[in-house]
Design a binder for these strands. Structure first.
Lengths: 161, 161
DNA sequence: AAAATTGGTTACAAATGTATAACTATTATA
DNA sequence: TATAATAGTTATACATTTGTAACCAATTTT
């Protein structure tokens, strides 16, 4: 019990320690090497992985309020990176999906961002690389799994009772 | 060679995938559960781990321009969380270090932030926990090592030639 | 001693992100 | 049919972060 407690604490410490390093590397690369902001790139990423999402769906995935989603999507639409799809059966719903250009630009941006890490990973020896691949895969999978419900939280902007 | 190439790409992909998950969980917790902004908490963290730093040193660690460091430190000083130490032998240099209150508050905040992760990690079985601890430790250690030179980059604000 | 460099601050502008309220249009419920 | 709920937008205000320029004081260099 107290051992499990300490294991959890150590994992949490590791995750909290990993964050600023990846955060700085990631956002610096996004800002300096692409035309995107972190939020718009996250938006493209969510659409890339989920095919199409409603406005609210995007908000849940990114955990940003609905009004901000409108702003983000508007920006992407003017650049022709995403498009609106109107639902025939429920005309309140608007689906957003990547355009072909959006897919291409996103993959390109992802590659550029990843390069920041790649350049530094080069120097590791092959065993360290294999081990890091295994570790990072495990961390990613577990995180995606245990955090997946954050995507269903309602953090939309609603009228006050 | 092409295998190593692909390993590196996969690692980079994992890191880029991990980021938004940790980012959202972390910054949401910081904003909603503490009085800090991510940047001020990073500042405290850097000071916690390095004992004392100059203003420029903080800027390098956090990768923020010097004028912003002044703002961040000023904020922390008014709350009595950090203090200035004037260097006797070079009076241009100002060291910043945590006060006792700063240490306590930081540890408390870290615990609160970590709780977000802890609550979700509870449900994993013991083997998954051990494996995740091992994986996250590995990722953290390698990242700290290969990214450590980012702290020596000069991103200060300098007069244009 | 004059000039250049370094460490830090002040001031200001702009971009980005967060938060709330009020609103339209559509659909579901009673 | 009246009411409530849902999906999304518009508007506004504010906090945070980023970027640039100019500046002072102290130190080094020449």
């Amino acid at each position: 019990m107290s051992e499990e407690r300490s294991i959890i604490d150590d994992i949490a410490d590791n995750l909290v320690a990993i964050f600023p390093i990846v955060a700085k590397t990631y956002t610096k690369a996004v800002r300096s090497k692409t035309e995107f902001t972190p939020a718009t790139l996250f938006t493209l990423g969510a659409l890339f992985h989920h095919g199409k999402l409603t406005m609210s769906g995007i908000g849940n995935h990114l955990m940003v309020p609905k009004p901000h989603v409108t702003v983000l999507v508007d920006k992407l639409i003017t650049d022709n990176l995403v498009e609106r799809l109107y639902d025939e059966s429920d005309r309140r719903i608007i689906y957003i999906q990547l355009t072909e250009k959006g897919r291409e630009i996103f993959l390109e941006a992802k590659k550029i961002i990843g390069k920041e890490f790649r350049d530094r990973l080069e120097d590791l020896d092959i065993d360290a690389k294999r081990r890091l691949l295994d570790s990072s895969s495990n961390v990613k999978e577990v995180l995606v799994d245990i955090m997946k419900d954050i995507y269903t939280q309602n953090n939309n902007c609603v009228k006050k009772q």
